[in-house]
Design a protein around this nucleic acid. Structure first.
Ligand code: FES
Ligand code: FES
Lengths: 141, 141
DNA sequence: ATTATTCCTATAGAAATAATAGGAGTTAAA
DNA sequence: TTTAACTCCTATTATTTCTATAGGAATAAT
């Protein structure tokens, strides 16, 4: 289970991808995505610090994707907010950490299960681009 | 990311599957898996209440799998401890719940992504039996 | 100037996580 | 029949994470 925060982040990024030509204000995104405004602000700041968004201050400012939506993936967004997608750190590529309680990692059945889970998850999250998400959301306009 | 609790549950179930012939005490499992004893006790109680384990009280008592390890899956264990494996409830089969903030679920790109993620995860977790986990852990004895 | 924005810091309640503690009840074996 | 090894039950607690909310300073277009 992912947090609301990650879900809102994905929604916001999808909305931005679907309006790639314009800069959207946090207010606009909050309204379109039914996301609590102040919470969204914090999320957008995170995404900006992680270099997934660019921001423009002042009147008619707002947020825009840092790169073309075809080159950004859902996995990146989730990692930016939640950290590694592997169910256990011992199975993570991006945030590996040893399990104190497992003597032999190579022989650990739980780890092997989680390595496979990570791969399965990654095959979905790291292959789906924001462009695809935006396209899907416009199937029913 | 899953909780320590779920990880310990998987380890405990794997240990039990690898010693299918005997009844193991919580102490024994705690030692073999390097799991905090009192914490493990609570976990085993959960697994028993969810009918994944059978317990025998008193001297030479302990815990044993409720069914043959070939017929129990990692997915069952995780669901018993963590609840649904879908990243969002709107994408869950076992614990479906509507998203308040999404107007049209069918057109929601985030949901579609999570439906696919759930399927990918399930294809690993619901296909791996405890017997397989036990076998793996004995590759290096 | 005015207004619409991002940006920054601080706060905070609620829930989940990860245990620990102590003891009551059960059962097999000595 | 005692005793030791167990499960089982009920609390308690510290820490962290989640999910926001509040208020105002900095910035930029008009
Ligand atoms: S090595 Fe991480 S669960 Fe065993
Ligand atoms: S319906 Fe659940 S995220 Fe949109």
């Amino acid at each position: 289970m992912i947090s609301n925060k990650a879900k809102y982040a994905l929604k916001a990024m999808t909305i931005l991808a679907a309006n790639q030509e314009r800069v959207l204000s946090a207010q606009e995104i909050a309204k379109k995505g039914k996301i609590p405004y102040k919470f969204l602000e914090a999320i957008l700041t995170d995404l900006k610090n992680r270099k997934l968004l660019r921001s423009h201050r002042g009147a008619s400012g707002g947020y825009a994707l840092a790169r073309p939506p075809g080159e950004m993936t859902a996995g990146e967004v989730i990692r930016a907010i939640e950290g590694p997608i592997a169910p256990l750190l011992c199975a993570s590529l991006t945030g590996y950490r040893r399990c104190e309680d497992c003597v032999d990692e190579e022989a650990c059945a739980v780890r092997s299960l989680m390595v496979d889970s990570r791969a399965a998850l990654s095959s979905v999250l790291d292959r789906r681009s924001l462009a695809e998400l935006a396209a899907f959301s416009q199937l029913k306009p």
